[in-house]
Simulated assay, not measured.
Amino acid sequence: MTVRVERDEASGVAVVALDREHRHNAIDLATAAELIETWREFRHAEDVRAVVLTGAGTAAFCTGIDRGVTVAQPTSPYSVDDPLLSIGPKANDLWKPVVAAVNGMACGGAFYLLGESEFIISSSTATYFDPHTTYGMVSAYEAVYMAQRMPFGEVARMSLMGTAERLSARRAYEIGLVSELAAPEELLPAALRAAQTLAGYPTEAVQGTVRALWSAKQAALQQALAQAPALITLGNLPPERQAELFAGRRRAPDPRVR
């Protein structure tokens, strides 16, 4: 199992933790399948009324898709088989509130999960960045999800600057991506406090409010996501060239944190 789930029936809160600390909680196909199963099961679980989503350890919340994952892609520029497209709660029709507790690095494919969480509580030592352009890949789905949560100039800079820069937790809080900062040891307690409050309210009202909030942005989000497959097919370097760039990452200078 690469997704650890802990339920507290008394409070109605479940903690979902990506549990691949040795891989910076990168998502492989097994993890993707476990996330999908977890969200869909929660739809029917009356003892789960709110969720905290986090990553094991302190080095990373999630670093996106595991580079070892290989997926055969269609030849059409209008189709992309992206194993991360269905890993979020909203993609699985779960409208119970999800509070993300971010520790360490959150980058690339982590934004599929953060993009479908209600709000983010961040460790003060966390950083946020999008490595796609550095490795010859189009940031399409990730950029679209973050454009729903960040000022345009900020998400444009993060998406385009690749691994050269990282967004500090403080800056993420200042621009509204993060709703609360916590010391690393206080991160999970802070997220649990918020989730326990939500779980204590009538669940029909909470879920209805979550659904109403998402209806305000869903049309624009779906329209933007529909453009992603063609943009990825047109803009991505061949996989072998991406691998060369990725292999050379350790020779790059340390990123600037702003």
Rank of each mutant, 00 (worst) to 15 (best):
G200T: 08
L234I: 15
P202I: 06
A194I: 10
A199C: 02
T209A: 05
R193M: 11
A195V: 04
A194M: 10
P202D: 09
Q207T: 13
A228W: 07
P238L: 12
K217V: 15
A216H: 12
G176A: 00
I175K: 00
G208D: 08
S179I: 03
L234M: 15
G208E: 08
Y201G: 02
K217N: 06
G235W: 11
L177W: 05
A195Y: 04
L237G: 11
N236M: 08
E204W: 06
A226F: 09
A190W: 05
R211V: 03
L221S: 09
V178T: 12
L234D: 15
L198Y: 06
A190H: 09
V178Q: 02
E204M: 10
T209V: 02
I232Q: 08
P202R: 07
Q222A: 13
Q227G: 00
A230K: 14
E204S: 14
P229I: 00
P202H: 06
R211D: 11
E180L: 14
Q227A: 07
A212G: 08
L213H: 10
Y201F: 13
A182C: 06
A220D: 15
A182S: 11
A230V: 08
I175Y: 01
I232D: 02
A191Y: 10
A194W: 08
Q227P: 00
G208Y: 03
I175T: 05
L188E: 03
P238V: 11
L237R: 14
Q218M: 13
Q223E: 13
Q227Y: 00
L237W: 14
A199R: 03
L192F: 03
V178D: 03
G200L: 10
L188F: 00
L225E: 05
N236P: 06
R211L: 11
T233Q: 15
Y201K: 09
L187V: 10
A182P: 07
S215P: 05
L213M: 08
L221E: 04
Q218L: 12
A212Q: 14
P189M: 06
V210P: 02
G176T: 00
E185I: 07
L221A: 09
Q222L: 15
L188S: 01
I232M: 09
L192V: 03
A191H: 10
P202Y: 05
P229V: 00
A219M: 01
V206T: 04
A228E: 08
R193C: 11
G176P: 00
A205V: 09
V206H: 02
V206W: 01
K217L: 07
R193Q: 14
T203M: 10
E186I: 02
Q223F: 04
L225G: 04
A220N: 14
A195T: 05
V178K: 02
T203S: 13
A190M: 07
A182F: 03
G176N: 01
Q207R: 15
A199G: 03
L177K: 04
Q222R: 15
T233G: 10
